[in-house]
Structure formats: structure tokens, C-alpha cells
Amino acid sequence: MHSLTKTISAFALLIMTATTHAETVQIAVAANFTAPMKELAVAFEAETGHRVEAAFGSSGKFYAQIKNGAPFAMLLAADAATPAKLDEEGLAAPGTRFTYAIGSLVLWSADPKRVTDGAKVLSRNDFRKLAIANPTLAPYGAAAVEVMQALGLEQMLEPKLVKGDNIAQTYQFVSTGNAELGFVALSQVAKNGQIREGSGWIVPAELYTPIRQDAVTLKSGADNPAAQAFADYLKGEKAHTIIEAYGYRF
């Protein structure tokens, strides 16, 4: 019994010392930002000793969860509207909203030979399905609709559309070849400014409203030093280099 008490106290001491040095921050992250976030988390943890626990999903789902008491300290949304809404409803720490990245849209195919001449692949009409993210839910989906309208191809493409619940699922439809083409986030298919695999057309920015992705610290994270540190880190040059490599702008 005595040795058990000792062991428990030793563990308690260990845990206490660990927590005094470093905090853990739970962050809800938009699905399109998955790849850069993983890299940012590693770099941030190495630099500060804090720990990051990231959950990836859609902004709409995170909104519902946060509203119902989810313990996230921060939200890195896929849009500007969700953080604004949380702010208005008093669920965010005031004055903590900022744009951490501006997303880029790419028309992408898993087939390396398909997208070779930009938007012409759409009007050629030699494909079965075009995947987009659900435009009422995902900003990348709304941007894709704007692009199709700007190109005057909306009506022609409408019967070929399949909609992913979020941008990650949209990517899955295209990468498995079930949809030959899809509008996805450049961050999903690019590394160091280059498209990693398949073929793609980076949609010119003037064809759609900029996809401004905002971050916000939530009420529950207002006193968490790790949340503050991560917000600062996101604004810094090191983070920007990583984020830019995935095709985001500022």
C-alpha cells in the first residue's frame, strides 16, 4: 500500500511538473488546412514545448459543437463567416479574429494527362462527373460555383456535379477516379507551389471571391497561454512560409 501511494504521488508530481512547463491547446481546423496544420503543429511544438491537438472537419460542424460546449480553444475556419458568427454570439474571445490564410482553388484530376489546357477541359465535356464541395456548406464549393458561372458553363456542368460534404471528401471522389475532375483546394494537391500528382489548373483569382480563412480564439481558450502562443505563431514569418508552400496567399 505504501509503495502504491508513493507511485501515485510520483506520477502526480510528474504530471504537475509537465503541465507547468507546457500547455495543451485543442484546435478545430478546417479540412482544407489539414496538411499545413500538421506541419505547423510539429514546428510549433518543437519551438514552444506546448502541445497541439488538432481536430479536422467542416466549419459548420465545428460551429454546432462549439455552440454546444466543445472544449476547443481555437477555431481555424474555412471561411470568415463562421468566426464572425461565433464572435457575434459571444462565444469567441473579443478582438482575436484574424485572417490566417487565403485559399486557392484548383481544378484537379488524378489523371496526369487530363488537365493540360486550363479551363478548356471543362468545355470539352469528355468526362462523366465533376466533383465540388457542397456550395451551401463549404466556401471552396461556393467558389467553384462562381468559377463555373464566370466561365458561362454552369448550366452545361450542372448534371455532372457530385457534391462532397466537405473539401476532403471532394478530394476523395477525384483521387479515387470516381469523378474525373473536381474543384479542390490547392493545399490538398500542392507542395512547394507545385501540383504533386495528377494534373490541375490553378484557377485565376479574379474568377471567384477570395476564400478568406479566419481564425478565432474561443472563450474557453482565452486564458490558455498555448492558444495565445499559437495565434502569435500563425501570424509569424515561419508559419507563413509553411502555409504559402501549400498554395495559400495572404
Binding site: G60, N134, T136, L137, D165
Partner: peptide, 8 residues
Amino acid sequence: IYDHVEAM
């Protein structure tokens, strides 16, 4: 249902 919830 899922879409309604996601769209708030």
C-alpha cells in the same frame, strides 16, 4: 438532415 445541421 446532416446538410441542414451543417448549414446551421
